[in-house]
Structure formats: structure tokens, C-alpha cells
């Protein structure tokens, strides 16, 4: 009995997925009802996934082409400014009012303006993704750099590490744990903004794929697009975790 509950607990995640899958099958393939066409069967969705594979891959590529550059620039800018402002009080004081005001503004309210002032849809969506990723990365980095234990600073001073070298050799490394939590929040937000931007005005990408088939009431393809987006996001997040574990190995016992 005990071993049974142990296994139940161990595989509960998979079991729950199977239950959800069963409900999906029941709704879509069970007794017919009015709006059943809104719930395509697993078989139809799988077929859509397979038939649209090229378009799905292209969409994922187009989305990543917006996401990756915007996110990278946001990371570089956010981490650099964050380290400097977290380590140097006057810089932090200078940036505090503007970040207090601007950080909480939901990035999607910039979309209409971004479309108006930037020459292409591509630039406006990357700009929105940049904004979404920048604030959490910057704020977390700055907080991390500001909270570096006094002991590291003293040590650095004693062995003769200068002010500039301190920034990258000590502050940057010591803040890595909070930098990573900023990067992960920023990643989540930039995914949201990416798909929002694509639903709005883009004619490429995962968000556009879903919106396009929804407009034509092609629900198998639409659900396939949602599932595919989930898979892409999951893969990127797993990759992210891998890098994080590699770089943060030293936080194990601290």
C-alpha cells in the first residue's frame, strides 16, 4: 500500500496530464453538442500540427527573430546599468525617480505609439519586447549589486581591486543570482509582449499564426499553434535553466 501511494505521488504529474487529456477526448469526441467544433479532437490537432509543420517552424523562427535581439539588448543594457547603479549611490539616486515611475507602466500601452513613431512593425514589436524585458532585468540587477555583502567589498579593497574592476570582477559575479531572477521574469514578460504584439499588427510569428486561424475559425490549427507556442517557450526556458545552473553552481551552500 505504501509503495503504491509513493508511486502515485511520484507520477502524479503525468497522471494529472492524462486526466486532462481524457477530459479533452470526452468533450471533443464524446456525445455531440452544439459548440463542439470549438474543441477539435486530439487527432485533428495532431494532424494540424503535422500538416502545418513548416508554417509553425517558420512562425517560431519569425518570433525568435524578434525576441532574441530585443531580449539580448535588454539584458546587456539592463545588466550594465543595473551593476553601475547598484554599486554607485549617486547613479542609483539619479535613476530612482524615473525607474519608479516608468517600470510599472504595462509595456503594451506603448504599442500604439511605438507603431506610430517607428518605421516598421518589426521595430515596434522588438521595442515593446525590449521595454518588457529591460525593467525587471535592470531592477533586479541593481538590487543585487546594492546588496553585495560587505565582506566581498572589503576583500576586494584589500587585495587592491580598483573601482572599475570591482564592477565587473566582483559586482557582476556576486549579483548573478538576482540577475538571473530578473532575466527569468524579463523572459516571461517578453514572451507575453511578443505574442501580444503579434496578435496586434504583425503578419508573422506564433501570435499571428494563432490569430490568423482563429479569424478563419480553423480551430484545429489554432489549438496546434497554442500547443506549439507552449513547446517553444518550454524549450527556451529549459535552456535558460541549464545556463543558470551552470553559472550559479557556487550558490549551493550559501
Amino acid at each position: 500500500m505504501r509503495t503504491f501511494t509513493k508511486y502515485l505521488s511520484k507520477f502524479s504529474g503525468i497522471l494529472f496530464l492524462l486526466v486532462l487529456f481524457g477530459i479533452w477526448v470526452l468533450i471533443s469526441c464524446g456525445p455531440e453538442w452544439d459548440s463542439q467544433y470549438l474543441f477539435p479532437s486530439p487527432k485533428a490537432v495532431l494532424k494540424a500540427l503535422f500538416d502545418s509543420r513548416e508554417e509553425l517552424l517558420r512562425s517560431a523562427g519569425a518570433s525568435l527573430l524578434k525576441l532574441v535581439p530585443a531580449y539580448l539588448v535588454a539584458s546587456i543594457v539592463g545588466i550594465s546599468i543595473g551593476i553601475v547603479s547598484g554599486s554607485i549611490p549617486w547613479v542609483s539616486n539619479m535613476l530612482k525617480p524615473i525607474s519608479r515611475f516608468a517600470a510599472p507602466i504595462p509595456p503594451n500601452v506603448y504599442i500604439p505609439y511605438a507603431i506610430a513613431i517607428l518605421p516598421t512593425f518589426y521595430l515596434s514589436s522588438t521595442f515593446i519586447i525590449f521595454i518588457a524585458a529591460f525593467w525587471p532585468i535592470y531592477l533586479n540587477t541593481a538590487a543585487g549589486a546594492a546588496e553585495i555583502p560587505e565582506k566581498y567589498k572589503r576583500n576586494a579593497a584589500i587585495i587592491g581591486i580598483g573601482k572599475f574592476e570591482y564592477l565587473w570582477r566582483i559586482a557582476l559575479v556576486a549579483s548573478l543570482p538576482s540577475i538571473f531572477s530578473g532575466l527569468s521574469v524579463g523572459m516571461g514578460l517578453s514572451f507575453i509582449m511578443l505574442t501580444v504584439a503579434e496578435l496586434f499588427g504583425e503578419n508573422t510569428g506564433l501570435g499571428h499564426f494563432v490569430q490568423f486561424y482563429a479569424d478563419y475559425s480553423d480551430y484545429p490549427n489554432m489549438v496546434a499553434g497554442i500547443l506549439w507556442t507552449g513547446i517553444v517557450v518550454l524549450a527556451i526556458m529549459e535552456l535558460f535553466e541549464l545556463v543558470k545552473r551552470k553559472l550559479l553552481f557556487w550558490t549551493k551552500a550559501n
Binding site: R154, V173, W250
Partner: peptide, 8 residues
């Protein structure tokens, strides 16, 4: 007193 080697 608290160990001050850089942990990384």
C-alpha cells in the same frame, strides 16, 4: 570571521 573567499 565569516569566510571571505570569493565563493565563485
Amino acid at each position: 570571521q565569516d569566510y571571505t573567499l570569493f565563493p565563485w
